[in-house]
Design a protein around this nucleic acid. Structure first.
Lengths: 232, 232
DNA sequence: CAGCATCCGCTTTGATACTG
DNA sequence: CAGTATCAAAGCGGATGCTG
């Protein structure tokens, strides 16, 4: 008996409200969906396995479901990369990339929770990209470029000035002006300025090089928060 | 994935990721939660029944759950209003109000879906407040104030200039400079400039008064979209 | 191994009924 | 008016199976 297996209907649940927020949530409101978008925004075009690694806790079938839904909605497109990659890459479309301001605003609001986050939360180094976008900017574009090597979780990350702008990428650099390593909460704290450098060192942050490199990257208003804001 | 007990028995599912977006979604990522916040942002302090009316489709137990969770998270507080109101009011705390930029950005992104929304979507007049915030501004604050009476769904709404700023509120005004009434999609279309006024009239929009009143409120860049943008 | 699909126990949601 | 109670259905999380 050969009954056609009913192809999973894309029966996405809708709020059925004539409201643009409701329409947005119809598309990206399900569990895990915005975190999938985060991964694609932070990592760029990614393989399935890398996405799964960047989403600790997700069930693999859910990741497949979300990618299919996002593709159907036009936010994600798959690219069959030719050899030597020879794998499927998932990338944001223009429409998906247009969600970045909204996602960044949500991430900004959530920064207030970071100081009180449990110590056993999972962490990936590239999650530092949003905080860097939110809290850092090159304050002296005329000076020679600087690089900060960060080792917080699994992946080493580099924060570097490029043409007066900041770039955060995975990898290592030969002779960074400053190297930071330690628990994610300490590294995030000193990078954002929410935690004073001395206090972080006292709590176990390791560093090499010139701590003043951070001041080059932190706007004055941010540095103020190190003393007044919540303690990481 | 851990399940954390909050106060009594309600369990809040957490992503357990040291990422501020994940922390945000731990708090407001469940189904209906952001729409509850929308209602509180658009209507101000509200009674339970009014919230339920502004959230067509929500189950009453879910509304109660969400309000409890939001209160616990510190985004919403309840106020026992004394007579003559003699009821409990729900209102956003400062922390909850700080989510407005993020919610507005999500709503902005979703505007692109409005032209193709089903005709039988539910609608409430005060849902026009976000679009007005996003698309309109007083272009001639020196001129005498203007008022637009809008009748799109159940509740009549007024858009009025106040000290060079725009205010949208429920209610009626005596002699508006312009009165618009008709299907939500048509009214939204002409208000945002996504739909040319003549086209809207041709499709059933009713109006009284001076259509040029809208130009007073629409930035030039918005008016351009009326001819080039997608048709509502 | 990458990239899913399937199965199963559990949780959340949705619709309705009911109560102070 | 402002919720709680109940229960079926859908969604989720975890494990495992299949295919190139």
């Amino acid at each position: 008996m050969n009954i056609k297996p009913t192809a999973r209907l894309p029966l996405v649940r809708s709020y059925d409200q004539f409201c643009s927020l409701a329409k947005t949530l119809d598309v990206i409101g399900e569990r895990w969906t915005m975190l999938v978008l985060r991964e694609l925004m932070l990592r760029g075009p990614s393989r399935y396995t890398d996405l799964r690694d960047g989403l600790p806790g997700i069930a693999t079938n859910l990741l497949a479901d979300r990618l299919r839904d996002l593709e159907q909605a036009g936010l994600v497109e798959r690219e069959e990369a030719p050899p030597p990659i020879a794998t499927t890459l998932y990338r944001l479309t223009t429409r998906g990339e247009e969600l970045r301001p909204a996602i960044v605003e949500l991430a900004r609001w959530g920064m207030a929770f970071m100081p009180e986050a449990p110590e056993d939360d999972s962490f990936r180094g590239h999650w530092l990209v949003f905080p860097v976008e939110l809290y850092l900017a090159d304050q002296a574009p005329d000076q020679p470029p600087v690089t900060v090597q960060v080792q917080a979780g699994d992946e080493p990350m580099v924060i570097e000035t490029v043409d007066g702008r900041l770039r955060t990428r995975r990898g290592r650099v030969e002779h960074p002006d400053l190297l930071l390593s330690g628990m994610p909460k300490l590294v995030l704290g000193v990078v954002t300025g929410m935690l004073a450098f001395d206090a972080a060192v006292g709590r176990g942050l390791h560093y090499e090089g010139d701590p003043a490199t951070l001041k080059r990257l932190q706007p004055p208003s941010v540095r103020l928060k190190a003393s007044a804001g919540p303690r990481l």
